[in-house]
Write a protein that binds this DNA or RNA. Sequence first.
RNA 1: CGGGAUGUGGCGCAGUUUGGUUAGCGCGCAGCGUUCGGGACGCUGAGGCCCCGGGUUCAAAUCCCGGCAUCCCGACCA
Length: 571
Amino acid sequence: MRMSKLFARTLRDDPADAEVDSHRLLVRGGYLRKVASGIYSWLPLGYRVLRRVEEIVREEMDVAGGQELLLPIVQPLELWARTGRDVAYGPLMFRLEDRKETGFCLSPTAEEVITTTVAADYSSYRDLPVNLYQINWKYRDELRPRFGLLRAREFLMKDAYSFHVDQADLAKTYDAMREAYAKIFTRCGLVFRAVKAQSGEIGGDTSQEFMAVAGVGEDDFVWCAACDYAANVEAATRQISDAGRVDGAPADAPERERVHTPDLPGIDGVAAHLGMQPNELLKTMAFDVDGEVGLALVPGDREVNPTALDRAVAPRHARLFTDDDFAEHRELPKGYLGPDFTGADLVLADPLVRELRSWVTGANETDYHVKHSVLGRDFNVGTWADLVTVVPGDPCPNCGAPLKIDRGIEVGHVFQLGTKYAEALDARYTDEGGEQHPMVMGCYGLGLSRVVAAVVEEYHDDNGIAWPAALAPYDVHVVELLGKGDTTGEVTAAASRIVGELEAAGLSVLYDDRDARPGVKFADADLLGMPVQLTIGAKGLARSIVERKVRASGERDEVALDGVVAALTGG
RNA sequence: CGGGAUGUGGCGCAGUUUGGUUAGCGCGCAGCGUUCGGGACGCUGAGGCCCCGGGUUCAAAUCCCGGCAUCCCGACCA
């Protein structure tokens, strides 16, 4: 491809609205242009990268037994109503109406469509399993689109769905898909971890996220350096030890003492006021359990993990009080709640609450706290449960080693769905004995456009992008240097010949034939980031060589003019 | 949804506080010339509903009101 013809204009300045490196460099390099918030045009260079990711995904999905199909982006809302997800997704869905005012949405995912599609044609155990996937645009009207491709409202996703007779059969495909994901991300050059996850809107039991490790990621995940434990911070647990446990009320505990703490509804403020540490205060969080009021107790320096709280009350559902809830429950003094609040229907506490003999707690009265509250004497706990959000240094639930926390970009997510969708949408099969059962499903998402951004986050430097060979839009960037040294057209002739030879050898070549000064060409070559740059100029030709630079390492060497193809094809 | 900010040629910005001729600068773009191995220089030129709508005024990019868009922060931790 001749750069003089390529539809790509590089920008000298950073775009003002690009906050992260991937967004900034993809726009500067002419890979991407914004059309609206969270919506982008993929220019020729960018689209080539996206297609390369697509090909890798397609290859590995096919190896894993997937069959590619294409589902509609515009989907009837009525179908979503059958699973209740029109409500569950709420304003996250782009909605539209046709001329008859029938409701539709732009597909944020496709469980409903695929499940009804499979159910329409398959009804026997002999048909199963089947594993179907598509690579298609998805639409989510995010609360806050940001970071360019990392949280976009339109994004390219590979979504796969598998259907099985039972859980055991699902597990096989699930494992095969996990392996395929690992291969895909490895081929794309990403440093990633597979972490345990909560399933969120999709629903279901077991799920794992694939996180590309990156500082700009929006998700925290916990991992253990000593074993293979890794989990999304919401799903993470820790080893509960009985070390430091105090049972019953100590005989020598001082009496409770009420203290005035005006206008100090926060832990830190109260601790500072009393000259104590936050972990000497007991945090009492109100929550709703199907209409009942619960209290969750954790040390003042820890936070309640809403997901852990929800697990603790299963099969019921817990939701921490919001300001609105406090407004409805005037009897609960926000900021001054204590563990002995009489209006609570249940009291849960994290085992860490057993580790201190005496606590500062809220006095259940605005502007007052209480010192020397003792477990077993002044308050009691109904249920002990893991409630706190894991922090670095907590013991690994598998091996007890100190856990670490990192940030990541969620590039993939695999789920074992069970029969939720099959039941709601009537996807049943008949077994050998003539009995009917709902199909057991798995689903597997992978964000291709997000992979592109994650790769750029990992592969760039001050000068621009440095694509891994597997994703680069072109294999080689040929820079021809014109100027007064090239009065005879010798450089152009040599460059065109080399480009032709490289292309004949199967390499894709970006050929900078523009009438521009060398500095401009070098800067653009670094910005665009092809893995190998070949510089062809009069100086080199005089010695029958061209200059090679490896973009990622900056390494340079010289290649004999008649050995260029051999040098670049390793032959 | 709450808070903050911004909206001026393709890109990055100044001008707005204190209203006043033809609205500026850098990059980019076009032409000519000199240059030519890490973002050259000179001359000439094209390109602007100053986000949109209403209002105030003799006069609005500038003041007022209302929209829209974009970006950032936050959106339960008591």
